[in-house]
Amino acid sequence: MKVSMTINGRSVDADVEPRTLLVHFIRNDVGLTGTNVGCDTTNCGACTILMDGESVKSCTVLAVQADGASITTIEGLAEPDGPMHPMQEAFRENHALQCGYCTPGMVMAAVSLLQENPSPTEAEVREGLEGNLCRCTGYHNIVKAVLAAASAPGGPK
């Protein structure tokens, strides 16, 4: 089945089997491998991307469901040689990653969280990231990074 969507501002047309998962489409067909697959069972959030601006777990969306949608992956947050997105910068500053496997999904979930709630409390950040697991268990610094991004000059993006 033919699908066309915008991924990180670029329009993509393809012919996919209906059972193709969006995460596989993004990684294997489009070649954007920043989005990880962790659990493959909708629990860990490693595969989180933005679909029409909202965080979703792309292992549990069919590519055909994203037909016509606007998708942002971790690669789309900043230009390849431009400055990092404020959320990425905050993760770096606050040492919010260890092995880095959960990081793309964490960052995308955090961006969506601040869009819905630009100045969250610490508890709201923790709850807002409940769909993302960090196997290195570095939650403390992840929460610190999100709070830092929320209060960064110019505010969250």
Binding site: T42, G45, T48, M51, E54, S55, V56, K57, T60, V61, A109, S112, L113, E116, G128, E130, G131, N132
Partner: peptide, 9 residues
């Protein structure tokens, strides 16, 4: 229900 990603879908 679930988490924010689940609630978005």
């Amino acid at each position: 229900v679930g988490d924010p990603q689940v609630r978005h879908r």
